Amino acid sequence: MKFLMTLYADEAKGAAIPAAEMAKYMEQMYAYRDALIKAGVFVQTNGLAPSTTACTVSTEGGQIRVHDGPYADTREQAGGYFIIDAKDPDDARLWATRCPAATWGIVELRQIVEHHSP
């Protein structure tokens, strides 16, 4: 079962962290990724560009609408993700609780529903 773990944190607070301290946080994230790989559940991970570079796209009445910035005004912004292949939802939750990002932000866990073409 594949799961998406979206990592949320306050971008402004993150930008204020000194480089040496941020390097320590990133070491924790790399160690977490290595643990996922060793356990055989790792699929993919990446960071995301700041939310200020985001846009939303919708169609209404046949008109395409593109708006700069994230859709919702929130305290936390999506900053990265992991995709894991866990044996069941409980296993995925366990991996989410081990993610270092859960100590300074929120980790949203959602099962990926895979659709296959007929």
Results as ranks from 00 to 15, higher is better:
residue 15 A to T: 01
residue 8 Y to D: 10
residue 18 P to R: 08
residue 68 D to K: 00
residue 118 P to C: 14
residue 85 D to S: 05
residue 105 G to Q: 04
residue 102 A to W: 00
residue 4 L to G: 02
residue 100 P to Y: 07
residue 67 H to D: 08
residue 2 K to Q: 13
residue 115 H to S: 13
residue 102 A to L: 04
residue 87 K to C: 03
residue 88 D to W: 03
residue 77 Q to W: 01
residue 18 P to C: 07
residue 91 D to L: 06
residue 116 H to M: 10
residue 54 A to M: 15
residue 75 R to I: 00
residue 1 M to S: 15
residue 38 K to P: 11
residue 113 V to R: 13
residue 95 W to Q: 01
residue 36 L to A: 11
residue 117 S to F: 15
residue 77 Q to A: 09
residue 64 I to R: 11
residue 107 V to T: 14
residue 92 A to M: 09
residue 57 V to T: 06
residue 106 I to T: 13
residue 30 Y to E: 08
residue 60 E to V: 01
residue 73 D to G: 09
residue 24 K to W: 06
residue 20 A to H: 05
residue 59 T to C: 09
residue 43 V to C: 05
residue 9 A to I: 07
residue 14 G to A: 10
residue 107 V to S: 04
residue 29 M to V: 13
residue 53 T to D: 04
residue 112 I to N: 02
residue 115 H to Y: 13
residue 35 A to N: 12
residue 77 Q to Y: 06
residue 66 V to A: 06
residue 7 L to F: 12
residue 29 M to Y: 09
residue 26 M to H: 10
residue 69 G to H: 06
residue 7 L to I: 14
residue 21 E to G: 14
residue 37 I to Y: 03
residue 72 A to Q: 09
residue 62 G to C: 09
residue 111 Q to F: 03
residue 49 A to N: 02
residue 20 A to R: 03
residue 13 K to C: 03
residue 66 V to T: 09
residue 55 C to Q: 02
residue 97 T to E: 10
residue 111 Q to M: 07
residue 47 G to M: 06
residue 115 H to V: 13
residue 58 S to C: 04
residue 26 M to P: 07
residue 93 R to N: 07
residue 42 F to I: 05
residue 57 V to H: 03
residue 95 W to T: 05
residue 33 R to W: 03
residue 110 R to E: 07
residue 41 V to Y: 03
residue 97 T to P: 02
residue 90 D to Q: 10
residue 84 I to Y: 03
residue 23 A to N: 11
residue 40 G to C: 12
residue 16 A to W: 09
residue 21 E to H: 10
residue 43 V to M: 01
residue 18 P to A: 15
residue 70 P to G: 04
residue 18 P to T: 15
residue 89 P to N: 03
residue 47 G to D: 07
residue 94 L to W: 07
residue 48 L to D: 01
residue 108 E to R: 08
residue 79 G to L: 09
residue 84 I to R: 10
residue 69 G to T: 06
residue 50 P to W: 12
residue 68 D to I: 01
residue 10 D to G: 10
residue 37 I to T: 07
residue 96 A to M: 00
residue 45 T to S: 13
residue 42 F to C: 00
